[in-house]
């Protein structure tokens, strides 16, 4: 940011803007610069031409499939989280004792963090955990359940940590919609389903798109639970794990940066698709007004 002022300038420089300077400088130095450095580094492979890392990524059998492995986990997890959170949050849109209670209860899994959830799941969902004990009481139960050290373990852990997040986010968007609009519709005879379809859903579209993106980022960058709960050698070898191995086990920072860049790129494609879908919906204010 240019902070030079001169008496000849047309408008005097607003010194209030300087208040944003430390944060801006910090973000440029520690976010933009490393990002660009990583981009540059990804084109400077240890050996080979400038595209060698990307060539390696898309030809090596243990690298490029990680994109699908990650998407196969992250997309279903995000769809489940947002898909279940939306109707429940819609039910609870009216302020009540339950709303406060449920939101408080649901904050707990968010703060547990993925590591603790993974640790707990290993015992609870394990072949000798309480869940297995309860299921053994059921008549149609056969054979031990396998919910850890595979795909399902990682998916469940993504739902445990991601669902409360999606729920709280959607609830905060829904309660931000002026209930007067729905009341007006119901005066005109709209059922709750119709209110949802014609009033809440269009107004929620930007919030839902945002929520989907944020929930997806969380699921997409899955790392600890994929290692601890999954099968990191095979079905849950996610892309962040590949990047980590390249950087800290093979010390190939150039390749690691390339993987990180590909990871960011795939993420951006998903975000762009979601925002593109969101563009098909209504755009406008979410509060009723006379203007």
């Amino acid at each position: 940011m240019n902070t030079r002022t001169s008496p000849l300038a047309r408008a005097p420089f607003d010194r209030t803007l300087l208040l944003a300077a430390p944060a801006t400088l910090f973000m440029v130095a520690l976010f933009i610069y490393p990002f660009l450095y990583g981009l540059w580094l990804s084109f400077e492979p240890a050996k080979g031409g400038w595209l060698a890392n990307y060539h390696k990524f898309f030809t090596a059998d243990n690298l490029w499939p990680t994109i699908w492995t990650t998407l196969r986990l992250a997309l279903p997890a995000t769809l489940i989280n947002v898909g279940i959170a939306l109707p429940i949050a819609f039910r609870m849109r009216v302020k009540s004792r339950y709303q406060r209670l449920i939101t408080t209860v649901l904050v707990v899994p968010i703060t547990l963090g993925t590591v603790l959830i993974a640790d707990g799941m290993l015992t609870y969902f394990g072949p000798k955990g309480w869940l297995a004990h309860v299921l053994e009481l059921l008549p149609f139960y056969e054979g031990p359940i396998r919910l850890t050290h595979n795909y399902w373990g990682v998916l469940i852990s993504l739902v445990i940590s991601g669902f409360p997040f999606a729920f709280l986010l959607i609830l905060s968007y829904i309660t931000g919609i002026d209930p007067v609009l729905a009341r007006a519709a119901s005066t005109l005879g709209a059922s709750p389903t119709a209110q949802f379809r014609h009033i809440y859903l269009p107004l929620l579209a930007p919030g839902l798109a945002m929520c989907f993106c944020l929930a997806f980022v969380q699921a997409y960058s899955v790392f600890p639970s994929a290692v601890l709960l999954g099968a990191p050698a095979g079905p849950t070898r996610v892309i962040s794990l590949a990047a980590y191995e390249a950087a800290f086990e093979q010390y190939d920072y150039s390749l690691a940066s390339a993987i990180a860049m590909i990871m960011g790129f795939v993420q951006l494609i998903i975000v762009a698709i979601v925002l593109g879908l969101r563009g098909l919906f209504y755009r406008g204010p979410v509060v009723g007004g006379k203007g």
């Binding site: 976010f31 490393p34 450095y37 990583g38 993106c213 960058s221 990180a260």
Partner: peptide, 13 residues
């Protein structure tokens, strides 16, 4: 909006 791993690895470097 970006996965922490994406900028975390170049940042660590």
């Amino acid at each position: 909006m970006v996965p922490p791993m994406t900028y975390g690895i170049p940042l660590a470097t």
